[in-house]
Computed example of a mutant assay.
Amino acid sequence: MASKTAGSTPPNNLTPPQRAMPKVNKVTAGDITASLKAGFSDFLTRPFMSGFFGLLYAVFGILFVWSLIWLGKIWMIIPAVVGFPLVAPFAATGLYEMSRRLQKGESFGWSEILTVMANQRKREMGWMAFVTLFIFWVWIYQVRLWLAIILQDAPFSDFDGFLNTVFFTPQGWTFLAIGTCAGAILSAVLFSVTVVAMPLLLDRETNFVSAMLTSIRVVTENPVVMLTWAAIISVTMLLSLVPAFLGLIFTLPILGHTTWHLYQRAVAPAEG
């Protein structure tokens, strides 16, 4: 008698195909220069729209610092300001989409860009936002930990007193040294997992783990070039914070557009 289970095995062609990991290219300092030129060109093409995203980021930073002062969290101001650029890759999502459309010669307006940004919450970008904010939270928490351990007996009741303690006392120098090392490690981790992951998720249908692994491969296979790019981002962003965050109106859009073009050079186009 024939088995009841005969022919119940599904054909192989019903198995979902496994997506291949994106291929990573070698990049050079010339790629950074070319990407910066392309990013600046994108900014000049749509300066008001690009500047809008920079303005939003700057206003958020100003309100964030003001809220810390209002809540009396004086100790959080410096780590918050220093760690603020960590969330820039997520804030630049709209800029990536603008560069993508400009590169393809597509016309677009506010509704197209904002719609794409809103739709990212239904995709893997939300997980990348979680990763970014989690590392930012770890940064703030470890600063509070070292503050409690090293500066527990230091007297400061206002922002000027905090600055004096941090910059003009031996305990403050120790706090700065340890905090700088810890911050450098966290920044390196976040940079490695996001530098091309954000634009990759916007550009292709892939999961956030694959995007992060691809980003890490770009960094490990191009360590000198990507370290140079990380240094450019860090110095530019920190200098932009000096004039009350207002420098971000210009630098965030240019760096965001540039990141898109560097991603295009660092990751090979999808096959098919």
Rank of each mutant, 00 (worst) to 15 (best):
V65G: 02
I233C: 05
T15G: 03
P269C: 06
S3Y: 12
W127P: 04
L44Q: 09
F167Q: 02
R265Y: 13
L248F: 07
G94M: 01
L151D: 04
A58G: 04
Q264D: 13
T165M: 10
L248Q: 05
E106T: 08
L190C: 04
F208C: 11
S35D: 11
L68T: 07
P170W: 03
L147V: 02
W75Q: 12
S210Y: 14
A188R: 03
D160T: 09
L95V: 04
S3E: 15
I62S: 02
A38N: 08
T9Q: 09
V82E: 01
T214I: 01
L213V: 13
M76T: 05
M226Y: 02
A58Y: 01
Y263M: 04
A182Q: 13
G109M: 10
T33Y: 10
M125N: 13
P269G: 05
W173V: 07
V225W: 14
M226A: 02
W139Y: 15
S67M: 15
P269H: 06
F156L: 05
E271F: 07
G109K: 09
P16A: 14
A88F: 14
F208E: 13
S50D: 09
F168Q: 15
R100T: 02
W75K: 08
L202K: 12
V138A: 14
G61R: 03
P47D: 03
F250Q: 09
V224P: 02
I232F: 00
E271L: 12
A177G: 14
F208N: 13
L200H: 12
P47Q: 00
N13G: 02
G51A: 12
A211W: 05
F53M: 09
M212E: 06
V196H: 13
A244I: 15
R204M: 00
S192G: 11
P16M: 12
F134T: 15
E205I: 08
K4S: 12
L200V: 09
I185N: 02
M98W: 00
P253Y: 11
A20M: 07
V138Q: 08
D160E: 08
V24P: 01
K4C: 11
I185A: 04
R46T: 15
P16C: 07
L176T: 15
S187N: 15
I149E: 07
Q171E: 03
S157V: 14
L14N: 01
F208D: 09
T28L: 01
A148M: 06
F167H: 01
G161T: 05
M125V: 12
F64M: 13
F52M: 06
T214Q: 03
T174C: 08
Y57A: 07
I135F: 09
P155K: 08
G54I: 02
